[in-house]
Simulated assay, not measured.
Amino acid sequence: MTVATNTTKATEKVKVAIIGSGNIGTDLMIKIIRTSQNLEMAAMVGIDADSDGLARAKRLGVATTHQGIDGLINLPEFEDIKIVFDATSAYAHKHHNDVLQKHNKQVIDLTPAAIGPYTVPVVNIEDNLEQGNVNMVTCGGQATIPMVAAISQLSKVHYAEIIASISSKSAGPGTRANIDEFTQTTSRAIEQVGGAVKGKAIIIMNPAEPPMMMRDTVLVLSELPEESGTTEAEIAKSIEAMTEKVQSYVPGYRLKQQVQFERFEKDAPLHIPGYGDFSGLKSSIFLEVEGAAHYLPAYAGNLDIMTSAAQGTAERIAQCKYSTEQSNFVIA
């Protein structure tokens, strides 16, 4: 995380809670404890008293409950908590959000419920700082939408398709239960945040041994250079610049090779099932995401990019909404 500040004294950290003591919630907890600039872990919430996440939280001195959202509300720490992360499921999040909004808590949603606006830190965090609930899209969305946005900033994007390949071992029960929500949420966010007219998302859970790191393929169809006034070199430069911005909070995020370009003229268009014929410029972007291994192995980059994005979003919200001092905290 890149932080720039002009303040001369440290601000009081904002207390946060995490609902969901599984892989994502536990990784996020450890990230906050080890690396956070503005956040302090106040409570870890689960529904399985024997979960590893709750056990780790207890050992780290964090208040815990295995009674879900009701248990969180009854904790003495609840009153001082400003931000609550939800790392459960899309179905459960709807109830959690209803309860938390009544208590005026800032909610950061790591499920595909999408009650609040889709938020990708390097693309639109500044637009959503005043929202009571923000949605972190999906792991695939966090990895690929910045690439779509890097192109849409320069040229009209007619269609963008992403294929997110993750290790089967890094896909927990919540991920497996939300496959439909994953594809729907990611597709919509490609359009609403990435700037594509039409978006499509595919997820692949690879059972390979040893486990593979997260790989993402981003296919973007945009205007030809002579139509947009943007050259292929400028698009490649924009993608490289966006990659560096994501690396500021996900160091293991990288391009696997140079961007590949292909032209399709009007007399020889590309046919896309479900979309139709396309003439223009095709940009193929190949990504790899290596996790920081705070809780799970490095191959679980899909979890790492979600928790890193959620933490980055919370850091910025905490600094803007709850800090008593003004400073120049930036994600860049």
Rank of each mutant, 00 (worst) to 15 (best):
V3S: 11
N6C: 02
A17Y: 04
G22R: 01
G25K: 03
K31P: 00
I32D: 09
I32E: 12
I32A: 04
V45R: 09
I47Y: 10
L54F: 10
K58S: 15
V62T: 07
T64G: 11
G68T: 11
L72S: 05
L72H: 14
N74E: 14
V84Q: 07
A92Y: 10
H103M: 11
K105L: 03
K105S: 04
A113R: 07
P117V: 09
E126I: 01
E126H: 09
E130G: 09
Q131A: 15
G141D: 08
A143M: 12
A150Y: 12
S152K: 08
L154E: 13
A160C: 07
S167F: 01
R176M: 11
T183F: 00
A189P: 01
I190M: 05
Q192P: 00
G195C: 12
A196G: 02
I204A: 07
P207R: 13
A208L: 11
P210V: 10
D216E: 14
V220F: 11
S222H: 14
E223M: 06
I235L: 14
K245R: 13
F261E: 05
F264N: 05
I272M: 05
Y275P: 00
Y275W: 11
H294G: 02
A298F: 03
A300P: 09
I305L: 10
M306H: 04
T307A: 10
G312Q: 14
E315K: 05
R316C: 01
I317M: 13
Y322E: 08
T324I: 02
N328L: 13
I331G: 03
A332C: 06
